[in-house]
Nucleic acid binder design. Structure first.
Lengths: 337, 337
DNA sequence: TATATTAGCGCAAACGATTGTGCAGGATAG
DNA sequence: CTATCCTGCACAATCGTTTGCGCTAATATA
């Protein structure tokens, strides 16, 4: 009995309500200055509801040049930190009627490709959670006129949202110093990622402040993952004079370090104190709960959306820096016995 | 010096190449039967490249009614299992030129709303990783004519990709029985999620096969998360006759169970053997590495995309079931001493 | 009563692509 | 030498909305 299988358009509504399509558009979009009597508006709404009308977003976007869509470039979703931020961002964006289109930056080989793909889909704005420090493509994106903000990556030139990694690194290291440690190793992250770099800076500042020397072998580089961190930890533990504490650039590195330490017959925290970063879900569930630095990833994700929307709105915006907080747990605190 | 700030359109290219817009379209889309001499095609491509032309996807979609976009409804991205599947799906989809539009199902309160939002954005197909078992909205989606497949959720009526949870549950339980355990507890998952239910079925089958009684108190319900699983574990461990082994519906539940067990002064695996499910990243890094059931989440994500594309292609498809595999580790195996 | 104002809505031109149809002109056939 | 065919492209309609403009009739003002 249904009159037609096709999706109803504004034209069908117009017919049903006995008005012109343009009137339907105005009525549905409800611009205040287009003075249409309430009675007509109601009639149109009724017709729209009956026909189960839904606007065609392609036509809308084509006409208005806005897609109500923001892109998020994220290297991996399996990374707890990134997933958390993405999820919060998506929820926040949807509050304002925006959908999120994602591109794993790894997808397509080069970051460029995936991001280009995103932009080609005509998004209204972009959140980059993937930008390495020396990014040749940031200017390129800027050139294309797409508003964007950085997330979890610091840049002097572009606005973004970050945690205060320097302070976080400082807090972690300072905590270990306060526990009486003097030889403190650091498992760092990739050198082209600002978060990792800043955490290392904080580490150095805390050490310097306490007049503790930082020999180069005390900093072993990893790449945020268990394998590399395990090797870095092994290097630290095999030093002639073994460090008694390790500050790892993230929790997974800390986990790997603890795993290696156990294999060396060391007990935690007596022989080795460990501090991680990001306070991921498992940290508190471990047999020896992990001390970690927490910064609200949800808040960062939300803030990135807010920042982007402001930017898209033509406002001048400033970068947001979220303060971190140390969550001391057993992995770095000797139980007073 | 740039002639125009606006995005170049097919019309500009036509002008530059001295042909009609329609010819440009045909040349760029390269249909074989539209016989355009190579020389002209080259000229058009050159002009397009010089003007840095990029097709407007809105106009394309409006005309062709295809968006080259598939939607994924996923409850949470912070869940390792879902994130893994999503990531693989996204990579796979992009191989075929499809972007992925996501909606966290929790977003918008009711699943319906978010999914409706997705569909309204005019996607070409939908992957549902969120469908509960008795889903009132599956027929609704079907009615709207959007091809869809289920992921990680079983249904008799609709095609989908799942791991063989029943077999997985069986393998896990059978493994514990083989280790000599006779009182084996199970921390289950939500009753309206097919994966959880099927794992419990596998548990029961293994128990029955070994003529082991399953008293109702041996199955304690959780909801996939640490808190509920912790309570469930406590219930199990406080039974008059304590089980000597626990099969948990997922790794996080297993972790929580181990954590509670330690608080009770039990050692693992001597006093309590534990098996989890999904073999998440941390399982092998734990001080006592966790025995778990692995099914390739990447393969499942990819398979869902393949299934969906086939469906969109009008092919008749059949559900895919991936076989699981037990990864025995120290948490359930007594070291032979 | 004549004129100015305004409310209410229709007209038609975009937006940028795709695609069925058709028209020249050269090649081939009869 | 004419009829036919094919090649290589141009024309124009269309997808579903939005929106500047302008028309008609009713009301307000002089």
């Amino acid at each position: 009995m249904e009159s037609s299988r096709r999706k109803p358009t504004i034209k069908h509504i117009a017919e049903a309500a006995g008005v012109h399509p343009s009137t339907v558009s105005r009525a549905l979009n409800g611009l205040p200055e287009s003075r249409i009597p309430q009675e007509t508006v109601d009639r149109i709404h009724k017709a729209a509801a009956e026909l189960r009308y839904e606007p065609n977003p392609w036509a809308q976007s084509l006409r208005t040049k806005r897609a109500m869509m923001i892109g998020m470039a994220i290297p991996r979703f399996t990374d707890y930190v990134l997933a958390q931020m993405f999820e919060a961002a998506q929820i926040r964006a949807m509050k304002f009627g925006y959908h999120t289109l994602t591109a794993g930056a790894e997808v397509g080989g080069v970051d460029n490709v995936a991001i280009k793909g995103l932009i080609d889909r005509r998004i209204d704005g972009l959140i980059l959670a993937t930008a390495k420090i020396h990014d040749q493509y940031l200017p390129e994106i800027e050139r294309r006129g797409v508003p964007f903000v950085l997330l979890n990556r610091k840049s002097a030139d572009y606005p973004g949202v970050t945690g205060d990694d320097e302070v976080g690194g400082y807090l972690a290291t300072r905590h270990l110093i306060d526990q009486g440690h003097t030889r403190i190793g650091h498992i760092s992250g990739p050198t082209d990622v600002s978060t990792a770099l800043n955490r290392a800076c904080g580490y150095r500042r805390a050490m310097a402040e306490a007049n503790l020397p930082v020999h180069s072998e005390l900093i072993q580089q990893g790449t945020f993952d268990a394998d590399s961190a395990g090797r870095a930890a092994a290097n630290l533990l095999n030093l002639p004079v073994r460090p008694t504490a390790i500050f790892a650039v993230n929790d997974i590195s800390a986990l790997a370090a603890m795993s290696v330490a156990r294999q060396c017959g060391l007990t935690i925290p007596e022989d080795l104190a460990v501090v991680g970063y990001n306070d991921s879900e498992v940290s508190s569930l471990l047999p020896i709960p992990l001390t970690s630095v927490r910064v609200s990833l949800q808040e960062m994700g939300s803030a990135a959306v807010d920042l982007l929307l402001a930017l898209m709105n033509g406002e001048t915006v400033e970068s947001v820096v979220k303060a971190p907080q140390l969550i001391p747990r057993q992995s770095s605190v000797l139980s007073r016995s």
